[in-house]
Structure formats: structure tokens, C-alpha cells
Nucleic acid binder design. Structure first.
Lengths: 245, 245
DNA sequence: GAGTGGTCTAGACCACCCG
DNA sequence: GGGTGGTCTAGACCACTCG
């Protein structure tokens, strides 16, 4: 049953996980339905029970399954896939939704960190940061003014590039190439009003609602790699997050 | 080493996890430091390696540790504890920050679900919902207008209670007592402006910034138990979330 | 090559839930 | 009592990283 063909190299628990995920997606396993017991799945897939558990644990994290001690493992009713609130950047997110994204760099400079920025990036108070100010458009509409600060010490080769060649879209892959894969972000979200200056740059009315985001992005080892102030047009932008108890 | 005394009933991996967590908190294990290898930890704690992994896996989810294949397990630099963005309600959150929270119920009624609400709560379009409108104060300041809709079918005994006795603070424990422990929420966040009506109720200026939240709360099995419109004073309220890649 | 984490086994006993 | 998930073992071999 349930072909776990020997697709070389792929771990068994991954194959089991994806097989179950696919069965859920296709409706073969219905919402609310009880899965076969772990013992039975182990037999079906021809693996040990621990391996089955490793696969189902991932799906539980993803919100597709839940376990009840002494009862069984079940498919959750609506699928609140965790995937919907993973960390993405503006461009990845636009891609996913089929939106044409564009960024225009307004400023690109190396400056001393402000106390606030130094604290967020764990820098000494007078250290240098690369400041990139950019305007972002979705389907030709201006939605976001973006102020990013990056530790100069970690990514000094960035400023070798010419401004007009600089590629904000793949900032995170630059981090990764330097040994700092982006892993996690902490963001503080507020509602504000556009002041005169912001209104002018974003071509909106002063006093228009702005979804303000202050974000610190961390690499796998916890190194802060980017601190950002993000001003989003309130009428064009919303944010969806999933929280767990 | 590292006393794993037989504190009855507590699983070994939990003791290991908490022992490590405590060592990190106390600074005994420093940020960035490499942990002993899994084999060594297994020997130290007198358990098998799989049990050690079960304990450290939890700490990795919490953002306190990370693993590098072929290298080792390390303590992350700043601790971005996942705990900081768990699902909480207004009162739990206030408690945690030592804020005096108070709620005043403005409306309490049973009505037909609107299409929007029915969709969110997976109800038939004409089903009944309990509507609770309340105003919430933090340290005597009005911060939030809260419109909650709850499936009448699941919690019909709620309306037996007298309005003046009704306890919004422990709404979620009522859900739990009825077999629907709160597990997860999906929230959409927007920046808006206060209209005349909202301004009047919340005693703020029309046109003031509002952090608007539309939230669906789900029980463990995925049953939607609560749908909420939430209007938060922009100058008094911010939201912090942690996202993972 | 030595050390590390990643995967996997084939059992075991326990705790929980239900009829 | 029978079925289920929760915990745990004592190994094994592989894949990766680094000097």
C-alpha cells in the first residue's frame, strides 16, 4: 500500500510525511478522519513506529494532524497550514500571489548606527551599518517604504557593488552566501498616520493609515543580519499571522 | 553530573530539556557555545541518544539551540524565545506585563451569523452565534473594542448566565470545559482610521489610527470556536510576532 | 580520519481512553 | 480489556564538516 518507492536518498520519514500530506490534500484522508494507528502505519509503510512518528510529528507542527493520547491521530478540520505565515520577504510573497513586484532604491549609504539600531543588531554604538532605503511597488502601485540597516562588518563586500546594479531582491541570498542563512524574524507592528514627508514619498494623503513594522531578522545561529523600518499603505496592505497556544 | 533526580512521573526528555534550559538561563552554557555531543550528553544523563535528541529538539523549536550537521549543537546568540509570540488573550497578556485589565460588556446577544462570520466559523448561513461586544481597558485606559462571535450550537449553555455575571476573562476556559481547548489562531492585521462611531465609543478623535485585527480562534481538532473583530488604539497598542523561515 | 548530527530499527513498558 | 499514543532503549549505519 501507499507506494514508498525507493526514490534514492530521500529519508523514509520524509516520504511518509509527504505521502500522508498528499493523501490529505487529495481528500483520500478526510478532514476529521482518524488515521490508522501508528503500529498499523508502520506495517503498511514497512518501517518502525518511531519513523512513522517522525513523519507525523512534522504534520502536527504544520497543523494538518493532531494526536489524542489513548484515542488516535486525526486530520484537523480546516487546514490552517503553518506555511501561510512563514517568514518571507516582499518579493517571495509577491511571487506566490502572482503580483508583479518592483523596488526602487532611493538611498544606499554607510552610516553610523543609531543607538536603537545598534541595540537591535547587537553592535557597538559607533559601528557602521549599510542603510538601504527603497520604495516597493506591487503591480505598479506604491505600497511600502522600506528602511533597512545591515551590519557593515558582516557584509562589507556589498558596498563594492554599483548602486544601479544592486539587487535588493536577493538580499537574503547574499546573507546566506556569507554564511548567515535567514532563519527567524521578530516584528513589532503598529498602526500610524502618514506624516507630510512620508505622504509625499508614497504619493498618498497625509493622515492616511500606515501599517508600521519594525523588524529584526536573524540568521540560524541568532546573529542579527537586518533591522528594518517598514511603512505600508494601510489600504493596500494587510498581514496574516498564525499563533499557537 | 547534572542531576536528573528521579522526580517521579516526569519524562526523562523533559528533565533533560529543562536542565539544559536552566543551564542556558543561568549562563552556565554561554550564548554561541557548543554543547557536548549527543553521545556525551546521553552518557552524562544516563539515557539513550534518542532521548537526548527529543529534549534538544524542543529547545530548537523554542529558538534556544540550533544544530549543524557534522559540527555540533550550539546555543543561539540572542534568545528569541518563541514564547514571546504565543497565542494569548487580552487578560493573560496584561497579567504577564503587570497591567490591570478590565472589560465592560456592551452587548450580549444571540443573532444569525452574517455570511462572513458563518464562513469563518464553518457554520450554515442561518445558524445562531453568540455576539459579545466589549470594551477593554488597560490600567484604566480604553484600548480595545472587541466584537466576538461564538457558535451557539457548541456553547449554548453560555447564554443561561446572567449578563452581569458573565465572565469574558475566562471565555477560553469555558471553551476548554466544553471539550474545545484553544490551540491556534489566524489573525489578519490592518491599519485603519477611527470612524465617528468608533471614536465616540473609544473616546478618541475620528481619524485616529486603529490597529484592526480580524481573528479566528481554533480548538485542537481545528473546530473554529471564536471569530473576532478587534479595534485597537494605534497609539496604545502594538503587536509583536515571531516568524520562522 | 575523527567527530558530529541525521536516520532508522525492533523491540519494550507505560498511561490514557473507551465501551 | 483492548487499542491507542507517550516514552525509552541500545544499538546501527550514513552524511556532513573540518583539519
Amino acid at each position: 500500500m501507499s507506494d514508498i518507492s525507493n526514490t534514492e536518498g530521500i529519508p523514509l520519514y520524509v516520504k511518509i510525511r509527504e505521502s500522508l500530506r498528499q493523501q490529505i490534500a487529495s481528500g483520500e484522508l478526510e478532514r476529521g478522519q482518524k488515521l490508522p494507528s501508528e503500529d498499523e502505519l508502520a506495517t503498511q509503510f514497512g518501517v518502525s513506529r518511531m519513523t512513522v512518528r517522525q513523519g507525523t510529528s512534522d504534520l502536527i507542527d504544520d497543523g494538518l494532524l493532531y494526536r489524542r493520547h489513548g484515542v488516535g491521530t486525526f486530520v484537523t478540520l480546516p487546514h490552517i497550514e503553518r506555511d501561510h505565515s512563514r517568514l518571507t520577504n516582499f518579493f517571495e510573497n509577491s511571487d506566490k500571489h502572482g503580483i508583479h513586484a518592483k523596488a526602487t532604491i532611493l538611498e544606499f549609504e554607510v552610516i553610523h548606527a543609531t543607538p536603537m539600531i545598534a541595540q537591535a543588531l547587537l553592535l557597538e554604538s559607533d559601528e557602521f551599518v549599510i542603510h538601504i532605503k527603497s520604495l516597493r511597488q506591487a503591480d505598479e502601485v506604491m505600497v511600502t517604504l522600506h528602511d533597512a540597516y545591515i551590519p557593515h562588518r558582516l557584509f562589507s563586500e556589498m558596498i563594492q557593488e554599483e548602486l544601479h546594479d544592486f539587487d535588493v531582491q536577493h538580499l537574503w541570498s547574499k546573507f546566506e552566501k556569507n554564511g548567515y542563512p535567514v532563519k527567524r524574524a521578530v516584528q513589532k507592528i503598529e498602526a500610524r498616520l502618514a506624516d507630510q514627508e512620508l505622504a509625499k514619498v508614497m504619493q498618498i494623503q497625509a493622515g492616511a493609515p500606515i501599517l508600521f513594522k519594525e523588524r529584526t531578522v536573524y540568521a540560524e545561529d541568532g546573529t542579527p543580519v537586518e533591522f528594518t523600518y517598514c511603512y505600508n499603505r494601510g489600504d493596500m496592505y494587510s498581514l496574516t499571522v498564525i499563533l499557537n497556544r
